[in-house]
């Protein structure tokens, strides 16, 4: 990474920290949000100008996502804000999961450490994505707000978690050369189980508790972004992701 890019990422990090701090006080909240948005703009521009990138598909994604995000933010009713945040959070979790997936398919000689970071990104990002969609369903009344309980729920969840950990270990073992084949299959299992876990974790929780669930899932998608930072060796992802992960945890306990 070139020096100017490092400076840009430091500036973005400072703006995120200041913005987040200001968001917690009524008098400064609005300015805090704008300061953090400037940080995001700096981080994105610095990444785009780093060189060696083919812009074709990036621009398509930026334009498409920007249009969808802007229209959705404009159209949503004030009363529909919590479910909107759930949906946006799901979108971010999905993005982190896909970043992990993309790095998995495009890296030929995966180091064990990178493999660990990738499976963590996919697990946490996938869980945050599917969990947020269920939270959105419950908040918007598209799904029954009552807790959905079935017998053996805990056993199923524990078994799925065990499968996820085992599959993740196999991905890492394959990357470090301890296992000859089956890495891709194990990776697919990690991906699918992560999505299933998100759904199963949120279904048994009642609609009234959903804002707290969204806050926790927000913290998760921050951690997923930080994990993605370890995957691509990017410091601004790690700083911003961990800030959201840690402060989101505090906000969840306050709520």
């Amino acid at each position: 990474m070139e020096a100017w890019q490092t400076f840009a990422y430091i500036a973005a990090s400072i703006l995120f920290i200041t913005g987040l701090k200001m968001l917690g006080r009524a008098e400064t909240a609005k300015r805090g949000n704008r300061i953090s948005a400037v940080g995001m703009l700096i981080a994105v521009v610095a990444t785009l100008l780093a060189g060696g990138l083919d812009y074709t598909w990036i621009v398509l994604g930026l334009v498409l996502g920007g249009a969808v995000g802007a229209v959705a933010a404009r159209r949503v009713q004030m009363t529909g804000m919590p479910e909107m945040v759930a949906l946006l959070n799901g979108s971010g979790g999905l993005a982190s999961m896909l970043v992990g997936w993309a790095e998995y398919v495009r890296t030929d000689n995966l180091l064990a450490f990178s493999a660990v970071a990738i499976v963590l990104t996919v697990l946490i990002g996938g869980l945050a994505a599917s969990g947020s969609v269920i939270a959105f369903g419950k908040l918007s009344g598209r799904l029954d707000g009552k807790p959905l309980l079935f017998s053996g729920q805990k056993v199923v969840n524990a078994a799925l978690l065990a499968i996820a950990v085992l599959a993740a270990a196999l991905v890492v073992a394959h990357a470090s050369g301890a296992l000859a084949g089956g890495g891709a299959l194990a990776f697919a299992v990690v991906l699918l189980v992560a999505l299933a876990l998100g759904v199963l974790a949120v279904l048994p929780i009642g609609g009234a508790d959903m804002p707290i669930v969204v806050s926790l899932l927000n913290s998760y998608s921050g951690v997923a972004a930080a994990a993605a930072g370890f995957v691509i060796d990017n410091v601004v992802l790690i700083v911003a992701g961990s800030l959201v992960g840690a402060s989101g945890l505090i906000l969840t306990t306050i709520m």
């Binding site: 913005g19 968001l23 994105v44 598909w57 971010g92 993005a95 495009r106 806050s215 927000n218 995957v231």
Partner: peptide, 30 residues
């Protein structure tokens, strides 16, 4: 301020856009 703070920090977790840009601009087809 709970909901705005959650929403504002959620926007920050969109920083994963940086990783997405790298993935979309550097890799193979998939």
């Amino acid at each position: 301020l709970h909901t705005p703070l959650m929403s504002g920090s959620n926007a920050i977790s969109g920083i994963t856009i940086v990783g997405a840009i790298v993935a979309a601009g550097e890799g193979g087809v998939l």
